[in-house]
């Protein structure tokens, strides 16, 4: 069971208190009607599915907030969590293979 740090509660808690919410930094297009079918598909369905550090979203059921995380999908270890809306942090060097 993973341990996850909620950046809003500033508390590290077990996975049971969180729900996974998919890849992060996929913003809803400002004007969907301007998008081609392929562009709209990319927004809806295409995912990085990274093997290694992965930007993703979680929701803390306790406080109800969505936040972002960088987690290594090979070790399942969280490298960091940060508040929604913050820019995508760079990959930590030592985890880049």
């Amino acid at each position: 069971m993973l341990l996850i740090h909620c950046p809003y509660c500033e508390d590290t808690l077990p996975e049971l208190e969180f729900t996974y919410a998919g890849e992060a930094h996929i913003a809803r297009p400002a004007d969907p009607s301007a998008l081609s079918d392929e562009e709209w598909r990319d927004y809806l369905f295409i995912r990085t599915n990274a093997r290694g550090p992965h930007y993703e979203r979680w929701r803390h059921v306790g406080c109800g907030r969505f936040f972002n995380a960088l987690r290594d999908t090979v070790s399942d270890r969280f490298l960091m969590t940060y508040k929604a809306g913050l820019p995508r942090p760079p990959l930590p060097q030592e985890t880049v293979e």
Binding site: A21, A27, R28, R57, R59, G64, R65, F66, A84, G85
Partner: peptide, 13 residues
Amino acid sequence: LTMMEDYLQTEWP
């Protein structure tokens, strides 16, 4: 509710 919260918090804060 989760869906609403998701849009409210992350798309339309």
